[in-house]
Amino acid sequence: MWSRVIEIMLGCWLVISPFIFAHPDTELTWWISDMLCGTAVILFGLLSYWRPARRAHLATIGVAVWLIAYAYLRSSEATGAAIQNAAIQNNMALGLLLMMFAIIPNDASKPPEPWRVPTGDTTRSGSSPQEPDDLPQSGTDRQLAASHH
């Protein structure tokens, strides 16, 4: 889950970005975009810890695409010095970073869930009941896991 932790930290950075880079009060869309995106990233990161929503971190890819698209949108309407605009660069850098972290699965060091049981073992005999991550990923098992936790 290291990737989720980093996403949540990057989300916090996005939320406080308007203050760090001192967005002017007239740039209300920058304020809203940065804070909403940051909040969404934190939310998706936290939701990923909840087993039924464990793929919520993939939604962060959408936020990252928006951050990058918005950076290009705002840079095309401005010229010259505005390219240096900290808000644009912040969105671009955070978009790229979040895109990379968001595709990393939970428990990335382990095999994907369906591969964690030996060949032909459908009974879950080898896995401990305390660890829902060791359950196979078939539909019924997922519901079982969701209801147990």
């Binding site: 990737s3 660069q89 850098a93 790229l96 970073l97 990379m100 972290f101 990393i104 699965p105 990335a108 060091s109 382990k110 095999p111 591969w115």
Partner: peptide, 20 residues
């Protein structure tokens, strides 16, 4: 900075995943 993010990506994508 773009290059730095790409190198960071090398490390992230290198770290993620099991040994198979």
């Amino acid at each position: 900075t773009f290059g730095a993010i790409a190198y960071l990506g090398d490390a992230i994508f290198g770290l993620a995943g099991s040994t198979r």
